[in-house]
Every structure is written in C-alpha cells, then in structure tokens.
Design a protein around this nucleic acid. Sequence first.
RNA 1: GGGGUUAUAGCUCAGUUGGUCAGAGUGUCUCGUUGACAUCGAGGAGGUCACAGGUUCGAGCCCUGUUAACCCCACCA
Length: 880
Amino acid sequence: MSEETMGKVYDPKTFEKKWYEYWESNNFFHADENGEGDAYSIVIPPPNVTGQLHMGHALDNTLQDILIRFRRMQGYNTLWMPGCDHAGIATQAKVEESLRKEGTNRYELGREKFLERVWKWKEEYGNRIMFQLRTLGSSCDWARERFTMDEGCSKAVREVFATLYEEGLIYQGRRITNWCPNCNTAISDIEVEHKTEKGHLWHLRYKVDGEDRYVEIATTRPETMFGDTGVAVHPDDARYKDLVGKTLILPIVERKIPLFADEYVDPAFGTGAVKVTPAHDPNDFEMGLRHNLEEVVVIENDGKMGEGAGKYAGLDRYECRKKLVKELEEIGVLVSTEEHEHAVGHCSRCNTTIEPLVSKQWFVNMESLAKPAMEAVKDGRIKFVPDRFTKIYLNWLENIRDWCISRQLWWGHRIPAWYCADCGETSVSRVDIDKCPKCGSKNITQDEDVLDTWFSSGLWPFSTMGWPNETKELEKFYPTSVLVTGYDIIFFWVARMVMMGLKFGKDVPFRHVFIHGLVRDAEGRKMSKSLGNGIDPVEVVDKYGADTLRFMLITGNTPGNDMRFYWERVESARNFANKIWNASRYLLMNLAEKESDFKPEESDYTLADRWILSRFSVVTKEVTENLEKFELGEAARQIYEFLWSEFCDWYIELTKARLYDKEHNRPRQTALYVLGYVLEGTLRLLHPFMPFITEEIWQKLPHEGNTIMLSPWPKKGEVDETAIEEMSVIMDAIKTVRNLRAEVGATPGKKSEVILSFSDEKLKNLFSAHKDYLTQLASAEPVTFAENAPENALTAALAGVTVYLPLSGLIDIEKEKARLSKELDGIKSDIKRAEGKLNNKNFTEKAPASVVENERTKLAELKEKETATAERLAALEKMK
RNA sequence: GGGGUUAUAGCUCAGUUGGUCAGAGUGUCUCGUUGACAUCGAGGAGGUCACAGGUUCGAGCCCUGUUAACCCCACCA
C-alpha cells in the first residue's frame, strides 16, 4: 500500500456514498427472522412525512444506529425497522397550504382527489427522508420499510379499533372536546398547550327575577354569556343561601335561568357565583349534566359567534367580546373589571386558541389500558434511561383521561364505523361493508372522520411486524430491545405503545426506553422554522461528513439532556476524523514493507508495545460496558482519548524510530504488527460511531471478512499492569523534561543532555533500558545517570526519580530557587494533607484498605519528592 | 397548584454506584514547518464545582433549605 492511496486529509465525500451502497447492495443490513443468534431489535420512531429530517432526527437515528451496529458486531441477530408516519393533521395542513397557493382547497378538490394529492406528497417526502437516513449512515433493514398507512399497518389499526369497540373500550360520545377553529378538528388533551395569558375578570350582574336584587358573577369569557343556562354557587356559601332556587334574568338575551348550588364552585374565587355555559366550558358541561341544563350553542366551529349570539352572530369570538363588554358597560351590567392571569389552551400545531365545543367524537377508555402500562414500568419489565423519566411517565398515566381519537380530517385511517340511515345502527367492521349488518339496508355511510395519528403509531412495534397475523418476525423480534426517542413524545407515543403492546402484542413493546433531549441552536433556543435557526443535517454532512456529524452529536452530551449545536464542535469532531485518517496513513505508508505472516514472539514486544496493547484491552472493556449501559457519549470519549492521546501522541511517536530504522527488520515488523493490531481493533470499537471512515480505512488494512460492520466486536484482551505502571513513570519523566525545557525556551529540534538520579535500583534499570524513549519524546540526548546533582542544572523531582537539565550557560540561581521553593511548598502541603488523613484513625479503620494503601503510597512518593527538592534547594543555597 | 432539569475554567459541556475527579472541547498566551496530521505537536495561564446547613473518616457527587434559569403537567370561572 502506498501513500497515493490515501489523501493527506480526511475527505469524507470520496467514500461515504460508496460504502453505503456497498453495505446496502450486499444486504448487510438485512435481518433474518429465521436466523441464528439472539435477537436485538429497534423500531424507528417514524419521522413525519411532512418535510425533511432535522437535527433532532439526526441525533435520534445516530443513537439508534450506534446501538444497532454495536449489537450486530457482537453477533446479535439485529433488526432496525425503518418507516414513516403519515402525520395526519400536519401533513394535511402542508398539502392544504400548497393548494391554497394554487388558489384552491380540499373541498373544491373533493376527498378522493385530495387524498391522491397527499399520497403524491407522501411519496416525494417519504423518499427524501429515507434518502436522508441513508446519508447519515443508518443501517436500517430497508426491505422492511413500513408506512403507518400501508396495508399491513392499516389492517392492524382496524383490528385494534374493532376489538376495543367490541370490548366497550372505544365508544362514541357527545362531549365537550378541544376544538381548533383553525385546523377545524377536535384534538386530544395532550395536543393542547396551556399558556399563561394576561386577561380580565369581568364582573357582571344578573337580575333576580321579580325582585330588585342582583347576583354578581365573574367571568373571563363574557361572550359565552349568550349560552348561559344557569348560575351556580357553592351549597355552603352563606351569601347566596336564600337565593338558591330562584330564577335570574340573563341580560340582553332576557332568558330565565336558574340559580343552583354545586360543589364544584369555589366560593373564594371571584364573587363565588359562576355563570354556567354547558355548551362552551368543560366544567359547565358537567354541571349542566348534573342539573339538567339546556345547552345553548353560541360559538361555531370556525370560532365565530353563532345564531344564539343574536346581533353578534357572525362576529369573531374576540371581536364579539370587545363589543359586548362595551354594551354591557353601557347598560349597567358590567360592575367592574379586574386584571387576571390565567392559562389558555392553544392548538399545539397552529397555536390557535382552543375552543371547547360540544360534539360527537370517538373516545378510548384509558383506565383499563393504563393500569398494565404502569405495572410494566413499576416492575421493571420496561426501564427508562435515564431513570427520572419513569416518574414523569407514571404520573401522566395515573391522571390519564379518555382519549379523543376522532379527527375531522381526510388524511388518515378512516374510522371503520358505518351508520345505517334506515335502522340507525352503528356498525364497526374490520373490512369495508356495503350493507347494514343489522337490517341489510344498503343505505349506509362510513364515518367521515379519521383517527388520531398516534392511534396507528401506538401499534408501530407490532403492526410493522405483520400483526395481527402470527408472523416469524413477531416471534423473533417482538418485544423489541430498546426504543430510542426524545422526551417530548413520551406521552404521545411511548405510553400509547406500551398500552397497545401489552393489550395486543401480549408483551411489552420494548425492554428499554432510551430518552434523549433536544438539539438546540448555539443560543440554546429550540430550532424552528419560524425562528429560521434550524440547521439541516444534510448540509453538515455535505460540508463535514456524516461521521463528523454523528460524532459531534453524541459527544459531550448526557442521556436525557438537551444539547447545543456549535459549528466549532463540528470542526472539533472533523479534526478527530482527520486525526484517525492520518494515524492510519502513517501505518499504511509503511505497510507495504510488512511481512504478512510475521507474528512477534513474546520477547519482541517492547515496553511501549505491551503498554499500548494493555491500554487497548482496558479501553475495549470500558467502551463495551458503557455501550451496554447506554452511556454512548462516554464510550465515544474514551475512544477519542485513547486514539488521540495515547495511540497517536505517545505510541505512534515511539514507533517512529523502529519504523524508520531499516537496518533492524524484526523490531520494525513488530512495530508494524502492533500498530496494525491496535488500529484495526480501535476502528472496530469506533465503527458504530463513525461507520464510514472506519470502513474506508479498515478495507485498506489487512483484515478478515467483507466489511467492518460484520466483523466481530473486539474482546477484552490481557492487561499487563506492570507495563502500564512502568510506562506511566517514564511518561511522567518525559513530561518533566519537556517542562524544564520549556522553562528555558529550548526548541524541540535542539537536543540536550538530561541527567537522572534514582532512589532505587529498579527504576534505574527501567530507565536505562528505555533511555531512547526520552530521546525520542523529550529531545533528551545524551541521557546520563548520576549519583550526585550536577551544579549547573534545572531540577525537578518525581517519585523515585530526579531529573536534571544541565545548562550551557549559568543558571539564574535566584529564579531557580524561587521555582523550587514554590514546588516544595506545594509538595509540603500535599504531604500535610496525606499525613492528616493517615493519622486519622477513623480513616485508616473505616476506609477500604485499598484507599488507605493508595494514600500511603502517595505519601511515600511525596516524601521522596520533598527530600530531593529540599536537597537541591540546599545545594543552590551553598552555591551562592 | 404539582413535578422535573440545570447551576463545574472566558464560552459550551463531561465527570455513571461518595475516596488521583477537579476534566474535555473551544478560546487565549509562549514555542515549534525532522516525511501521519498546522484539521498538527510541546508547554502555560484560567475554577471556594451557585449559596447556606447537614450526613460521613472523606462530598461537584448523598440529604435539607435558599437563590436563579429553563421545562413539563394541571378543567378553578
């Protein structure tokens, strides 16, 4: 292999695409449901087909790909199921927007034509997303790609809906629901975002019928008064005791409404009297049911006032409020106005203020589904990582309310319910029907509405594997191993999957839920379209490579926490890739001269060899453990440090002399062998994180197999503790020499003599065997040993070794004395601390023996340093 | 109203069960173009680990309280 095969810098463009195509065309990502090996499976959180992948997806999928690639190399039968979500409201809104630009709308187009348009959109954007996932290196099993509205998933939806309906867990009901006047559909409770807004509390007075008395009520929404059909007070409220049961006259409308008592009312709030509008407030609706009140609708689906509002009909709800307040003031109904802060619900999609409206919707009764979902987490069948999300999940399920699943949209799974115009029967069916099962009439129509998107997403872990059929996939890969997702959809998605999985999949849908945070911009703001601060992952890949982006996304970040996107961090990750590239280049440039069948004897290994091999073993063990406990960032950091700080900065430097010495072939071959061994192994450790560059280099190195992605995960090898210790002493000495040299401004090119003295023979032997290390890494030449300190030299004491750097000119004695006495002060205070500890009986008795032993060793070393430094100081004193 | 997260070097953050844990990246300063890499190497400066108590032989790490920022949940008009 010659230098020409590798460019001088890391250039991902030249190989990323090539390798992805290689992997994909060779079916390396494919999971075999009949295959051997324990299963390891992940279903992708299906991205919405609304647009393109953002940085959050890049993070999410990088995490999944790391886990998948790691387990695949470990020998698991590994499945990563890819796919997209149809994203009902969001996608429909996108397509409607493009229709609007064309000057038309979905009603003009008609349902069928409109859906054709959406499918076209889905094809385009769905493909784009799958392309982007490939760009990131995601090793998905593309043969199994699914879509929430494809045939299989739709079948699962029908099956689940029908079963829940038959069991009475899905029902239709006329209720107050959250209505978005802009999206024109009902939405579920969790799709409502509560925001605190400054508003007013208007005090109005309603006249008591036939008496010259008034009851004062307080309201934040005066425009709903047209729908008032009662006024409520607390039963124990003394102020209103004699009024309960009387009739009030609703101003303007002049309707007679009852004043009644209800526990719900908080006597301390406002005036203690509440206007009751059953058609437009959830609580009032409940009170209406309890007290048999009429529902008068005064606000329509579009957010405008209806017939009931009299002359205000047709006005926008807020416009009406303004005008009405003015009128109420003029006619003396408005008593006072207070400033008032309160939470107002907004549509999580379009931010429009939610209007609670009465309508007929489909609901899922959650109670019986939620219970097992809580149990599964409580008893540890499902574990959240990090653990703190357990509480959030449980708390939500404990307070869960029924789930409104019908949406007044066209894009989605149409509700499989048919209504008979003749006998009035409602029939739910797993297959389409054309006549009423009860009376046989052909005069039936299917429910116009579609299901909440999350209804089908909730089935994803098993609907993608062929459920309700009993498939091999389900048998092999369900439950999945882990779900990787952001904390923002724990309620929307995770909880629903657990409920549905337990109910229909007969087991938990996944064993672990690995939660990550959001990727924010450099200022810590959420990346969003409206702020225009989003960064396209594909742009980063184009500029820096997918490996760089992936590495940047998982380092310096801890599970569950948000992270910020910095181009500087991207560059730093790119620099790391370049470092790997060049370290490999160093080896490859010399590899042509490697004898392929050469295998070193035990005696061939140098201290540096034994050291790096041992360090590699340790790192392998730690990286593996960290990956197993989802500490991906920590695992990546360990590889980074090992590769850069140990392999490159120390080991490679120490092999140069052997590599360039053509006279002695055996040491040279040994160095090449160890370099290759450690580099190849490290590439395998790194492959899950940086799949492309590792494959590119691995293919150039001597290797076994077709691809690094299917090569075995490195096993922890032997660790030579002595080598690690000895090397660390030498490294310390080298650093010390470098320090002293920097002190006098010596340039690296200029070698200078270094004198060492030792407190024991073992150290002396160690250094005398490795003088060359000091020469190579600290420009120390010659390295000589002496019993007594040379006069004209800088000094630094290590444990057992004292380093002297002789100077050609005279040393500045005063300066050197100052430096040494500062050093001595530091040593002394360390000694004091160590002695303090060791003199404390509580410490020596209670602390683990190893900790105490450590402290003793440390103290002994400090004392050696103290003696050596003090002696040198004294010598300098004399010289003066 | 309930719950959570964060507070560590100028900046952004690691620090997984309490004992070489005071770290990294970046920025900054000094020096360096010997054939892996200037997307680099060597060296330096820089932190009362928010504050106050407590537990412990020992506390960024555990407990309590305080402050600040952010987030989630919540049908009081």
